[in-house]
Amino acid sequence: MHWLVRPDSIRKLWIAFIAILALTVIAEFFVEAHPHFGVDALPAFNAWFGFIACVILVFGSKLLGMWLKRRDDYYDEQ
């Protein structure tokens, strides 16, 4: 089994990933921010905004998919 797909390495990758996520939030205190609007001055704005945007996009897509999804041979049968 390739080292990258071993459960042990995947666990380590998750730990490293979470550490990097934390770092990007901490790094915010060390750079000079120049927000343009009120909302982007909130702490870790881009982190939670990006996360929430993705959650909304994924579930919004799923909702639309319920209505518009068809088997992938749909047009062949038409």
């Binding site: 990007t24 939030v25 982007d40 870790a44 881009n46 982190a47 905004f49 990006g50 996360f51 993705c54």
Partner: peptide, 10 residues
Amino acid sequence: VSQLQLLLFS
């Protein structure tokens, strides 16, 4: 920093 936050949390 803001771009990294946006992308990594996505």
